[in-house]
Design a protein around this nucleic acid. Sequence first.
DNA 1: CCTATGATGATTGTGAGA
DNA 2: TCTCACAATCATCATAGG
Length: 446
Amino acid sequence: MGFSPEEAAAAIDRCGVDSSVLELADSIHAAQMAEEPDGTGWGYSRPRFEAAEGSSYCSARKKRRLMEEKRRLKRSCLSQRRGDYVKRSSMDFEDAPMVIPKPMIGFGLPYEKCITRRTLPEAAIGPPYFYYENVALAPKGVWDTISRFLYDIEPEFVDSKHFCAAARKRAYIHNLPLENRFPLLPIPAKTIQEVLPVTKRWWPKWDHRTQLNCLQTCIASAKLTDRIRMALENSSDPPTPRVQEYVLAECRKWNLVWVGHHKLAPLEPDEVEMLLGFPNNHTRGGGISRTDRYKSLGNSFQVDTVAYHLSVLKRMFPNGINLLSLFSGIGGAEVAIQKLGINLNLVVSVEKSKINRNIVRSWWEETRQKGDLIDLDDVQQLNGDRLESLIKRYGGFDLVIGGSPCNNLAGSNRHTRDGLEGQHSSLFYDYFRILDLVKCIMGQSS
DNA sequence: CCTATGATGATTGTGAGA
DNA sequence: TCTCACAATCATCATAGG
């Protein structure tokens, strides 16, 4: 790793990547270098909730204080433009929303010029390492709040379309080092036609899609694909512009692919697994229905993306890691780490859904893991006492990973897009509570 | 009870053009 | 700076049929 600018430029040329990638990397790098002589280099300091508070292990009182702090921050509208990675002087403390950088490549992509260093706020530095994920396109202010709770770390905005053939716009907040990241091999193909070769034969010239939109929890019905088929049958060849427009809109909305003449179909669960980087049949069997497979997969990580970020752990932990995995789902984090060749000595996995826990458990057995897998069904079970005994027994956690529920943040939700205070998405505060407890306990014992 | 299906918009951001 | 058209989006609910 470690490309010179010339090598990076050459690599980008080979890949045919937009030069804006290089420009962005340059601007970020310049901003990183131009650090203030004193202070943290972040150019601002704001009150943050002091979580470590004696041995009073959270819950009611702490949660109340969290809510108070959150409301106060909301009122005071202390916002900071962060997304452009440009440091601001104290004059710029106006209400500026977080900006998502373009292109959405985080700190850089494999085999291209990357940001390799940043200055983390003191409070963010581990142990343990942590990694938090959620949807990038959340309602206004959500990422400002999340970032403020997670020790003022900048989110890393990444679209997984740079890692696989489907878009997945997500933001990740973590305190991992950035140097010497490497991708999982083999590198997946990034076009629909390569990944699903069957579709190539039937793909009409007027459908210019080469990548899929975000894989969600629901798929198109057979009725819809049949209506489209009828519309195409009754049109000319190629179809009239109006029909084309209708068909393409439905294709984009439902991620349909061409599987025959005038024939479109939603992705099969196996294909979704493959696109997200899971092993074949990962969610198959165990009494799970087809609809629930889509649901579990739609809520999951893109494994290659996450693995790229976590790859730095391989050198640091040659003997394996102890993992605390919150909101595990079907085990995207566990699969990513296993694929990186990092031993899992201990996994404490919290997941509400029983079928998801079964999926992780059977994956654990299929991959012949040597370590211990402890699965819990509720984050509330992880109180101070429970964590303390786990940490004493196993010697601490090396990584706390989790993507808290996005239900109340996701744009697809017509009913309860209530933001971070929503019934499910407010579980983010449990992620923070548990992370802060782990930091606290491990800080005391070391 | 379980499963699949169809109906149900709003909130963001962006880019062109006035 | 403003409007306006366009595009994307880890979903929820009631209901029918097994």
